[in-house]
Simulated scan of single mutants.
Amino acid sequence: MKESYFFAYGSLVNRNTHQYADCSLARLHGWRRVWRHTNLRPIAYLTVEPDPCCEVDGLIAHVPNGDWSTLDYRESAYDRINIKHVISHPKLETINVAMYSLPNDKHSQPTGEQPVLLSYIDTVVQGYNREFGERGVENFFNTTSGWTAPILDDRQRPIYPRHQKLSPRETALIDANLRRIGNTPVNLSKGDSATWLGACA
């Protein structure tokens, strides 16, 4: 029986957000990350869409006993799809690899009412910095579309439930790349935190 693995291209790249220990660097071919909004969630999230000219770095991680229930619950807005034929990884044995993606009929462009959370970007980019270094962070921004989406600066009062504490160097790295792509996060208004926390619970 082939072992099951998932491919991480967003927050799951940050190993502090999950307990899957058997992780390896991997590359997805023919896809691109993109920010999207889904009516199943109150804020914008990352997904991937086909792009024959793009490659996405990330991690593969072993799913013990093929038990997807925990991941399926965490990624409940997404569909789990098989990608074993479009991914490169260091495993010598033949494995089954799946990833989570928002299908076209379940998402749309982010809006001011469904922004991207800076605490979510922080978590994702911290993971990429630890796995791929500063060049990998730059590549993350370059291989992700949808950066015209509004970004809500909730860094001081994080809304994203798996947010991580950043070092000053990590903070500066993320802010520098946001400036490079021309997106300035909008500050979280007083009183909004409780509203968004309730919506994201």
Score class of each variant (00 low, 15 high):
residue 120 Y to N: 10
residue 160 Y to F: 15
residue 8 A to D: 00
residue 96 N to I: 13
residue 153 D to E: 06
residue 184 T to K: 12
residue 66 G to R: 11
residue 15 R to Q: 09
residue 83 I to F: 04
residue 103 P to T: 04
residue 196 W to Y: 03
residue 31 W to I: 01
residue 178 L to H: 10
residue 99 M to S: 12
residue 192 D to P: 04
residue 2 K to I: 06
residue 18 H to P: 12
residue 137 V to K: 04
residue 121 I to N: 03
residue 46 L to A: 05
residue 76 S to V: 09
residue 179 R to H: 08
residue 21 A to T: 12
residue 6 F to R: 05
residue 48 V to F: 02
residue 106 K to S: 07
residue 169 R to N: 12
residue 173 L to M: 07
residue 5 Y to V: 00
residue 13 V to T: 09
residue 64 P to F: 09
residue 77 A to Q: 09
residue 190 K to F: 09
residue 71 L to C: 08
residue 1 M to E: 11
residue 43 I to S: 09
residue 55 E to R: 14
residue 68 W to K: 01
residue 24 S to I: 06
residue 51 D to W: 02
residue 65 N to D: 15
residue 46 L to C: 09
residue 59 L to T: 05
residue 84 K to A: 15
residue 53 C to M: 14
residue 188 L to R: 02
residue 191 G to P: 01
residue 99 M to E: 02
residue 112 G to C: 12
residue 173 L to W: 06
residue 181 I to Y: 13
residue 24 S to M: 10
residue 85 H to M: 11
residue 76 S to L: 11
residue 186 V to H: 15
residue 46 L to P: 04
residue 57 D to T: 14
residue 168 P to Q: 04
residue 54 C to L: 08
residue 199 A to Q: 14
residue 8 A to N: 00
residue 84 K to C: 11
residue 129 N to I: 10
residue 130 R to D: 06
residue 13 V to H: 04
residue 64 P to N: 08
residue 140 F to R: 06
residue 76 S to Q: 11
residue 109 Q to M: 06
residue 101 S to D: 09
residue 57 D to I: 14
residue 167 S to M: 13
residue 137 V to I: 11
residue 145 S to N: 15
residue 185 P to I: 11
residue 29 H to W: 10
residue 41 R to E: 14
residue 132 F to G: 01
residue 191 G to T: 02
residue 18 H to I: 05
residue 135 R to Y: 10
residue 166 L to N: 07
residue 24 S to H: 15
residue 181 I to C: 09
residue 74 R to C: 05
residue 9 Y to V: 01
residue 160 Y to H: 05
residue 92 L to R: 14
residue 53 C to N: 13
residue 53 C to T: 14
residue 61 A to E: 02
residue 65 N to T: 14
residue 14 N to C: 05
residue 147 W to N: 04
residue 169 R to A: 08
